[in-house]
Nucleic acid binder design. Structure first.
Lengths: 239, 239
DNA sequence: CGACCGGTTGAACTGCATCAAGCTGAGTGG
DNA sequence: CCACTCAGCTTGATGCAGTTCAACCGGTCG
């Protein structure tokens, strides 16, 4: 389960989190600098449940966390997969609208909402973080609303290759070199399915199909080597 | 097309916009108070295109606007339908990630991003607006990823009945009274389909089916009377 | 060794998309 | 005033992508 770690700064992973936010912005601070509590979680720990009071702001500093919503009959939709630097737990009402669950070992900063109210520096930081996350949500809506199963899985894999697939993607590094990349999913097939709006069987079938076509190699279930990043990228429906 | 209106305050529609934001918040200001330009648009005007430089922040003060993204082969996903008080045009990069198009006659305030950088009051307001909009995006991801066609259309109709369908919905006003409600879609079937991740034919079929079952009456194509709000609500998949 | 969990694969089904035709009402022009 | 047009919508017939149901596989743990 989660254990507390109140040691203040000097945590090296925090630096990474800051860098992953909008570069060039003037808000370089982590929530930790405002006296946020730092908590370590194990994989599949719940940070909070949908419906819990929303009295804290959270920042993921290492590892990954998913936010999901449930329908009464048990259908689940993973609405966001968070990476270090992402903000979560901010809600309009007084209740959380999602459940937050870790996907891996994760470090999370939690700050009282009251402190957020007081600090315009945090509000400034938040504005940028939230608009970046909204952009991802827009992208994800396109995936859920308009993409085929193969396109969804290919897009998902490409999310995990930060410097490729974007608007100004450089293509493979050099002529002649292999266009390889190893990605770590840190999600089960069920979690991927619930993120992509598919069933576990469809995800499995699509991955097997990509493997048979030589596009990817599966070492462990959650470690996948992309053999031809550019070819995979062409399957995302965005090129 | 759009014409400009630089007259400063005293516009009565602004008040409505402010009220529709989080009640009780301390940020009561409209962007207009910071010298934002006010622009009037006709239905189906484009405020900006995906890829345009993002150098302004927009606030919708009256009417409605949709944000959508296109895939290269022409598939379209409407990612947000905005109501008065909503903020848009804020982007992480230097380009808009969506196209913004009006659905009706609409009034929009536009403020230079530089002014946003300078004002912590605006940033504070934004924080709340954005987190409210993110919550809606989460809800919409559930719709797109996990709901059936009937559930999607029913949910869409219920979005347009502000005081019903929420967590603490009171149910029909009184015993014996009819549970009626008239809603105005201000969207074509194609726009609805692109918002709900369906085809125009499916939307049409679902609406016809609801009509046959007596749940709704269609006066004009975009004016629908909900005859039994509670029954419709039960079709959203959320109860 | 057996139980179990997460994943894969196959066979059959189905909800929605696709394709195609017809309808309706507002606008136009003779 | 009525025929014509055209855009938006509806309806029907057919097809298929992805779901559902069911069996099986392989690694891990007690």
């Amino acid at each position: 389960m989660a254990y507390l770690d109140c040691s203040q700064p000097d945590c090296s992973s925090v630096q990474g989190a800051v860098l992953s936010a909008r570069s060039g912005g003037a808000y370089s601070a982590s929530l930790q600098d405002f006296g946020a509590k730092v908590v370590q979680y194990s994989p599949h720990d719940v940070v909070y449940y949908e419906g819990d009071p929303s009295d804290r702001l959270y920042e993921l500093t290492s590892g990954s966390v998913m936010l999901f919503k449930l329908l009464p009959d048990g259908r689940r939709q993973v609405v966001e997969v968070l990476r270090p630097g992402d903000i979560f737990g901010l809600s309009t009402g007084d209740e959380q609208d999602c459940t937050a669950e870790t996907l891996s070992v994760a470090t999370v900063c939690a700050l009282d909402l009251q402190k957020v109210e007081e600090s315009s520096e945090i509000q400034r930081k938040l504005m940028y973080c939230l608009s970046a996350q909204m952009q991802k949500l827009h992208e994800h809506a396109v995936l859920l609303g308009r993409k085929s199963a193969i396109e969804r899985v290919a897009s998902f894999f490409m999310y995990l290759v930060p410097d490729r697939g974007g608007a100004r993607c450089q293509g493979p590094a050099e002529e002649g070199t292999q266009d390889l990349r190893l990605i770590v999913l840190s999600m089960t097939r069920q979690e991927i399915a619930d993120y992509l709006g598919l069933t576990i069987e469809t995800v499995s079938r699509v991955i097997s199909d990509m493997r048979r076509r030589g596009l990817i190699s599966v070492s462990r279930h959650d470690e996948i080597q992309l053999n031809r990043v550019c070819d995979l990228c062409k399957l995302t429906g965005m090129h």
